[in-house]
Structures are given as structure tokens and as C-alpha cells.
Design a binder for these strands. Structure first.
Lengths: 253, 253
DNA sequence: ATTAGCATCGTGGCTAAGCCACCGTGCTAC
DNA sequence: GTAGCACGGTGGCTTAGCCACGATGCTAAT
């Protein structure tokens, strides 16, 4: 980039990083306009402009006469529900259950082909492999297989994997999960996958390939997930002059 | 809303509507800060704040020393590619073809059950029904069935339907398409659908139920679309401190 | 006639200084 | 104990003004 960004965009970025780095947690009171103006050597107007833009995309929230606060935020919320099946199930009035099918360490070179490349891992890098089956009201709905860079969260335990991976990452390992990408396809279930999901081989299923990222766009995990066709759907909204909702999975009745 | 929005948010909304109403088209020079400040009776600072927020979500673009311009925009671009299969196919290096299987008028009461309700149509309201099969390099990839409120685009012709519906709506009928929602599921193809798509019954396919909206959130169309599993996928990005990309379909090689 | 260079003007970028409405807090007076 | 008030800090918004940038069109040199 030869062209220098305008000051308020640089400022916006700097402030955004303060939040990503968890210097300010969700719910915290953020810097005031007057503080920012002093600390960064800009005018209060510019501070306000940068803050406004963070308010606009839901990262912050203004409360007149009080201050600026860090919001749970689209980011946090959606990533949480991307990862947290249990929350989703409970809010749909279902009882979630997780069965851990496999949990082992391996080297990147031992993983299937595209895994190491997509995770940007050298052949000797350590990975976790986790395979979980997730139930809603005792019906198996999701079969998930996930490779995780072990160096980033060395203290993962079996216990973590029966609960929320998301919590283990954010709370135990202080990882700031900043993004994810999903690719959705339709597939016919193979015999073994169908058996795990208690349906027939050849039945249709949604296959989602997802990559999760921490700060700096560094990958943290890669997962391939199978969703039983009659039990799950993805929804997304486009357009309006408002930021669009990301695609989210929903449990079907 | 008892609580009055701050001025700059009201202003932002007002400006946004100018664009939605197509008072300013894509590529046009927008109002200058000084014009806005005069026309709306606000300060230039506030005008800038409102504009900045529209720049932030990609609706406008600043060019220093020149002015503010209406961008092709996430909105326009994504909705276009939601609707325009041909563009997508061509940019994937494939040759698109469209075969019109059916085109007829009917009353809302004659349509399948959820259609009228989702379109908000009374039983006597006129609808178009359009069924199209879309090819990439002479391979059938998409089977689409669409109900359209006829009152909003009475002059649709068979010719329009062999090309771009999107163009017929926006150019011929001056409709501003402002949003859409998609729901993605996996299904097994029925015999007749499989025949149309030249695959075997029971094969997996992506089924997308979509609703499209014009200004004021009024529905314009409802479509059910089947995508051949090996030929199509949907991708979406979450997170970052930037607005997330909506889910978009992609042709597979 | 063509073109290189320059002056001008309108644009957004940014600052400075200041008033206001709003909110929480803590004190005061009942 | 509590109702009420005064105060200080916050974001909301304005006014006034300078600056850098980019387009435009003129002017002067070729």
C-alpha cells in the first residue's frame, strides 16, 4: 500500500486491535473520546469518527452521557454459535449431548492431504484430531472431524472436548477467534458416516468444510462436518443497507 | 421508537434511502458534504460522519479532492450474483445457457401452499411462475422454480426469462432490489428432478429456498432451486472487524 | 496547432474550541 | 432513611478555518 490511509482509518484499526487483543473485554468501558484524542494525538472529532465507525459495525456501543462500551458483537456472537452447537440446540428447545469418538495427537504430515496446507502447518507440526458426534434430544445430528494446531492450545483435554471447544480456546488459552470461513456442499453419506448418524448410506447430508482463524489471520482449526439433511439447514440474509447476517446453521424441528 | 435516534443516524438513513430509491445510481457522484450540510441543516462535520458510515459499509466511496461516489456495493454486486447465474458461470470460465421449461400466469390461490403467505399475496393476486434449467458448458447444473408477484413487473416477457431476470427487474421495471434471504438444505433428488438435471434419482442436491425483496421489505419473488451436488457449493466468511461476506454460490470445476 | 506547465477552485481530511443534553454519583436537607 | 438536587464526566453537534489533493481550463512555449 503506497497510499497512506486517512488518519481515522488508521485510528479505527488501532482501536479495533485493542479489542481483538482483549485489552478491553466484552462489556468493558472503552476509551473516551477525550482520552483517545490525547493518547493518539488526534482531535476529538476524529476520535469520534473512528469510534462511530466501530459502533456502526457493532463492535462498540455508545451510551450517551456514560461512555463507549465493547459489545458482545456480531463477531463474538456468530463465531460462538458457529462453534457452539450446545447453545444452538438449547435455544431451539432441544437437549444437546456430545459424544467424543476420537481424540489424538499427530504430526501434520500424518493428516490427510489438504489439512496441513490449509492450516499452513509444516510437516512436523503437532496437531490434535478430534471427532465428535453431536445429538439433539438423543438423535445424532452432526458428525464433526476437526484438526487443530496443537501449539496454539497445548492444554486441551478430553474434558474440554466434551463441553465447549470455544470456551477452552477463549478462556483457557486466551485465543481471540477472529473469523471463520465455511463452504457448504451436498453429499451422499458413506456407509460408516451413515451408521454414525443412524441413517442409511446414500442419504443426503450437508457437508461443511470450515476453517477458523485467530488474530493476524492465522488458522487455528480445520473441520469437516456432516449434518443430517432433515435435521439441519443454513440460512443467510443479503442486502439492505445494513451489514448482512452471516450464514448460520439452524436445527430443524 | 420512543427514543430519538442521533441526528447522524437519521441522516445516514435518509442518505441511504436516496441511494435505494435510485436517485443516485451506481457510479454517480453523490452529494458533497457542503451540499448535505446545507440541504439537511446539519454541520459539515455531521454530514461527514454520516457519509463515513456509508463508506464504511461499502455503499459509498470517498475520493479525496473529487467527491463521494456510489459504489457497485456489496448489495448490488451480491444480489446480482445471487440472481445472475450467467455472470457467475462466465466468470468461472464456463459457457452459460438457460432453458425455459415453463412460464405461466396464475392466481396466488392456485400456487402451492406456502407461496402466497411468504409473498404476502392475497388469494386473487396475480403471480408469474417460471421454471428454468441452467447449464454450464451444456451440463445442467441448476433447476429453478420461481413465483413472482406479477403486479410489480407486469411487462415480463418470455424473452426476459431467457436472459437475465435481474436486468428485467432493475432496468425495465425500475425495481430496486434491496435484499434476499436464502435457506440451504440437502435433499435427495426425486425422479423427475433428477431427470431434468440428468443425474440419478436419490442423488444428493442442494435445495435453496430464497425470497427476494424490493424497497420497504416488500417481497418480489420466491424461488426453490436445486443445485447438482458435485457442481455447486456455497461459501461464506465470518468475522474479522470487517463486514462479513454474504453466502455466495460457486460453480465447481 | 499542439502541448507542457501553471493557477484556480472545489473536494474531503482534520483541527480547535465550545455549548448542550444526558447520565450517574454523592451530598444535602428533610 | 430517603427524596431531591448539584456536579462532573460523557457523547452529540456546531462553527470556523486551514490543508492536501485532484480536476479543469487557461496560458505560454514549442
Amino acid at each position: 500500500m503506497l497510499i497512506k490511509d486517512p488518519i481515522y482509518q488508521q485510528l479505527r484499526q488501532a482501536l479495533g486491535e485493542l479489542i481483538l487483543k482483549r485489552d478491553f473485554k466484552v462489556g468493558d468501558k472503552f476509551l473516551t473520546e477525550r482520552e483517545i484524542s490525547e493518547r493518539f494525538g488526534v482531535s476529538r472529532t476524529t476520535a469520534n469518527k473512528a469510534l462511530s465507525s466501530l459502533v456502526a459495525d457493532g463492535t462498540l456501543e455508545f451510551r450517551k452521557g456514560v461512555g463507549t462500551f465493547v459489545r458482545p458483537g456480531v463477531l463474538d456472537y456468530d463465531l460462538r454459535s458457529l462453534v457452539s452447537f450446545s447453545d444452538k440446540a438449547r435455544s431451539a428447545g432441544r437437549v444437546p449431548k456430545t459424544e467424543l469418538l476420537a481424540f489424538r495427537r499427530l504430526r501434520a504430515s500424518e493428516a490427510p492431504d489438504p489439512v496441513a496446507a490449509q492450516l499452513g502447518a509444516g510437516p512436523k507440526e503437532r496437531l490434535f484430531f478430534v471427532e465428535r458426534l453431536r445429538f439433539a434430544d438423543d438423535v445424532p445430528v452432526i458428525l464433526e472431524r476437526r484438526y487443530i494446531l496443537a501449539d496454539l492450545c497445548p492444554r486441551l483435554t478430553k474434558r474440554d472436548l466434551e463441553g465447549s471447544l470455544y470456551a477452552a480456546w477463549t478462556e483457557k488459552h486466551k485465543l481471540a477467534i477472529t473469523g471463520a470461513s465455511q463452504t457448504i456442499r451436498a453429499v451422499k453419506l458413506s456407509g460408516s458416516d451413515a451408521a454414525a448418524l443412524q441413517t442409511k448410506p446414500g442419504d443426503a447430508a450437508l457437508a461443511v468444510l470450515a476453517l477458523g482463524y485467530v488474530a493476524d489471520g492465522k488458522p487455528l482449526w480445520r473441520e469437516e462436518t456432516l449434518y443430517r439433511a432433515e435435521a439441519y439447514e443454513f440460512r443467510c440474509e443479503l442486502g439492505g443497507l445494513h451489514p448482512s447476517q452471516p450464514t448460520m446453521g439452524h436445527l430443524l424441528p
